[in-house]
Structures are given as C-alpha cells and as structure tokens.
Write a protein that binds this DNA or RNA. Structure first.
Lengths: 158, 158, 158, 158
DNA sequence: GATGAATGAGGCTTCATTCAT
DNA sequence: GATGAATGAAGCCTCATTCAT
C-alpha cells in the first residue's frame, strides 16, 4: 500500500527502510518530532498561563491540521512496536517541556507533583478528548477546547 | 494462538466465537463491563469528593489487578475493530456516570462544562498515566495516584 | 447440514452411513432406483411408439415431481464419487430397458445402432433439456416435452 | 494443488487470479471458448447435412483431443459456480449457432421446434455419449460417432 | 442407540520480503 | 537505483469425523 501510494515499486521501499517495522518507526518519529517541534515553536517568553494556553491550543491546532498523523501516533503509542530510537525521540521531545514544568514548580506556579505526572495528565487528557471525538462520543469545537484548557490548567496550577 | 493457550483444537474456538473479530469484541466487552461494573460498584451515597476518590483509586486498583486487561482495552479502543454491540456496551457503561456528573453540575459541584468533556478529560488523563508507565516514562505508585487524583479533582470541581 | 435437517445429532449420521461418501452414494442409489423403478413401472404391453412416449413423458413427470433429486443425480453422475455398488445399480437399472431396445432392434423398430448408444442419446438429450432449463436458457413446458419427444423418436426409430 | 502443478509458490497464483472461484471461471471460459471457437471454425458454406456432420464430428474430435477439458466443462456446467462473465461467454458462443439453426428452420430444413430445444437435444445427447463412456458403459469409436451423428440428424431434420 | 462438543488436517488467502532483471 | 513478479510462512476458517457421556 505504501509503495502504491508513493507511486514506486514494492521493492523500492526497501531501499529506504529495512522493514515495515522500521518504516512505521520512522514515520512515528517524523510526526512525533513534527508535533514536538510545533509545540516547542509556540513557547517563548510568555507568562505561564499563556504558555499553557498556547500549548493546549497548539495541540488542538495540530490535531485539526493533521488528524491522520495524530491518529497514527496514538495507534502506535503502544510499546510493542516502538524501537529504541523512537523511544529516545519521545524522551528528547519531552525534555524541554519537562524543564519548563520543573522551573514552574520551583516558582510554585504548578502543583508540587512530579512533572512527569503533570505532563502525562495533560497530554493524556487531550488524547482522551481526541479519542472520544473519534468514537463520536463528543465533538471538539473551539468552545470545548477553551473549556478543557481551563480545566486542565486548574489541574496543574498551584 | 488462542486455541493453543486454551489447550484446545483450532476448530473448537469457532464453537464459541464466530470469528476472530467476534472473539476480540467479546473479550473487549467482557473487560469493559468488568471495569465498568467494578467502578459502578464503588459508587454509593458518598459526598462528591469522596466518590471521585473512590472512582480514581478504583481505576488504579483495577489496573493493578488486571494490567493486561487494561492494555487490551486501550489497544482496541480504536474504532475500526469494535462492532455495534461493543459500542453499545461502551455507551451503556458511561450512562450512569454521566448521570452522576450531570447531577453534580446542577448542584454546582463540578464546572459548567459539558459532562462528556469532563469525563473524557478524567478518563483520558488516567490512561495517559498508564501509558506513560508502560513506556517506562514514569512509575505509578500510591503517592502518584493520590497526587494525580487531587489534580484531576481540581480540573473538574467548581 | 444433513444431521441438522434430519433433526439428529451430528454423530448419529455415522450410525447409518460410514462416511459422507457412503451417504452420497446411498442417496444416489436411492434416487437412481426411484427413477428407474418409476420408468420401469410405466412399461407394459404397449406399441413401441407409445412406450417411448410413456418413457419420455415419464422422465418429464419425474423431473417435475423431484427436481432436486434430478439435479442431485446429475451433479453426482461424475465417476469420481460413485462407488462400485452405485455403478452396479446403474447397470442393473439399465438392463431391462436395454433388453427392450434390443428386442426393438431385432424387430427393426429402432435403428441398427448399438442399444447403449441409443440409450445414451435419449437420456443425454433429456438431461440436456433439463440443464438448459436450469441455466434458464430455455423453459420446458408440455409443448416442449412433446416436441422433443417426437424429435428423439425420430432419432432412434428405424 | 494448482500452484504445485504449476511449480510456483502458493501466493503466485493470486497474482493471476483473484480467488479460486475466479480461476475456475477463467479456466471454464477458456475452454468453453476453445470449444466454441473450434466448432465455429468448422462452419462455412456447406449444405446443412454436411455442416451438421462437421459439427458433430468436431465435438468428437475436440473431446478426443482434450478429454480433461471436456470433463472439466461438464463438471462445472452447474450454475452455482459460474459467474456472470462465464454465463455471458456461454450465451455468446451459442448465438451464431442459434442464428444458423433459425435460418435452417425458415428454410424448412430442421423441424419446426424452438431452436433452443434442438440445440439442447443435440449438445445434450453428445454429452450423454461422453458421460456413458466415462462410466465405461460404452466406448465411443468412429463408428459410434458416425451412427449417432445420423441419429441426431434425424432428430432435428425436417 | 443418540448426542454434540471437540478435533485437526487441510483449504483459501494475505502480505512482508527478496531478487533477478 | 528501481522494479514488480515471485515467494512461502502464517493466518483465519471449515468440515468430516470421533468419542466420552
């Protein structure tokens, strides 16, 4: 299917990727980095609440722009398929955000809870929204995004 | 594989499930109902904050007891494979919880945000925790569970 | 399927037939004998042309009454599946008819052509009619039966 | 089995045929067209009786040359397995012959009987011969072919 | 004698991968 | 470097048959 969509021969794919697993991992990394890079680009010298706003809305924007990429990332977020390099990318992307959250913690802006937990809650809740929308259990419009942003800020802010 | 693990002949599986898809769906429903039933059993005449406590800790307890079941539920939460009956089970399980959250909203206990969104945030954030732990990005111990419980109550409470 | 239609357990079938092949052969013999017996019962002290009339119309009547039996007989007329006993039945049923045709030959009523050939032509042409009707290439009504009867009498008569 | 006989891998078959059913149908069409084409090639500007001779002997020749093909065609002449395209081929092949028979009817050469019936009788009787020979009830040599040809011409000629 | 759950060989099919061109 | 035909292991499933009850 990949070869067909790429308009190349089936064998050609193997000149660029060792195996299907390698291709999936490369794609995973590509989009994880795209997402991470996009979110990173939104950061800057803003007050915490505004940074959180930019971050949450950024995830919303990215999901709107690349819904298939988000679905792909979620579908393959399961450990079995990801190789070491993909996990390394995962960590590398989280690093600057973790640094930021840690700083906030020192400044008593967010709760005194391990930053990994706060980050897992925030990202997880956003994904929860996405998945509920995929199952058509709800629809995520701008109002929903704003309301949930407020909720999750309350979740982490001191 | 299923037949082998069950120590029965390959054909025997088909006396109990029409197809692989039917088996996966039956398993999905079984565990979704187990989780839903367990959480439901924890509800009762308690103050909201305590109910939320029981709910959040209940998910923790269930995940500790049946880690494979939770992983299975997450792996198959993706719409493509679930049949109508499984989706119906999904909705049926959410109903009583939604009713509860709606009541809380009338009583001004939780934020004035569509209950579906609040539920998606809470469940999603818990799954976010689980998945981060699967990828060994963090470890969920009792302290983590308590801390995140507090966070998510803040997220939804008025 | 056979057990189900017979409203008995699957294993019960094997108390009456050694195998599927044995059952099919028994069924084949049963209906071959039914057809043969029916046609034989129509014979009697009639002039040749009338006997042929009774024979041809008899096949029509039998096919009308037991269309599934005829389809079954045709479907399994292929040597691979028939066992020795079934072939013996086949021969036994043809015997009296062959005797009749041979007598007709001596009396110069039918062509001076080996009786097996004449019989194969007549039976084959009737089956050809049936099969064309199964493929909806034509419809066999009484007029068609009468017309073809006349044709095939011409085919064999001296 | 097909792959094995063709000395290719199992999957290779599926590069040429979508499914077993498609393969059987393709084979059916191939040989039906071979038979039809061969018979058609024998027609020409000959008197009716000679055309019939060429046709009947043509079927004999074809059956002698490709006995397995004839057996295959007969075994699968049963509607359940043939797809629309195969049936279309069936009809297309019969068309020119029907046209010929219809012309003969106008010229009062063959009996005033629907041409479909005459064709079914002729083809059916030939198949009857074949099948009797497959069951070793008789042997079809040249003399038999000649004798039956004469019979069946009588069957249809005016 | 009847049952029907259990069996497993075998059938059809897919798809990730290879390799000769 | 590109191709795509060929591959065959493995997957899902059926069904004729067995056998403990």
């Amino acid at each position: 299917l990949v070869a067909e969509r790429a308009r190349v021969g089936a064998g050609t794919v193997y000149r660029y990727f060792e195996s299907k697993e390698a291709l999936v991992n490369a794609l995973y990394r590509k989009w994880k980095q795209a997402l991470g890079g996009y979110l990173f680009s939104l950061l800057g010298d803003f007050p915490p609440r505004e940074l959180f706003h930019r971050y949450w809305q950024g995830m919303g924007e990215f999901s709107r722009r690349y819904p298939k990429a988000m679905a792909f990332l979620e579908l393959h977020h399961h450990g079995d398929y990801l190789d070491d390099e993909s996990r390394a990318v995962e960590r590398r992307i989280l690093e600057p955000i973790k640094a930021l959250v840690d700083r906030w913690q020192e400044q008593q802006i967010v709760k005194n809870v391990p930053s990994e937990l706060l980050m897992a809650l925030v990202y997880g809740s956003f994904v929860g929204l996405l998945r509920a929308s995929w199952l058509t259990l709800l629809h995520v419009d701008q109002a929903a995004l704003d309301a949930t942003e407020a909720c999750m800020w309350e979740a982490i802010r001191r």
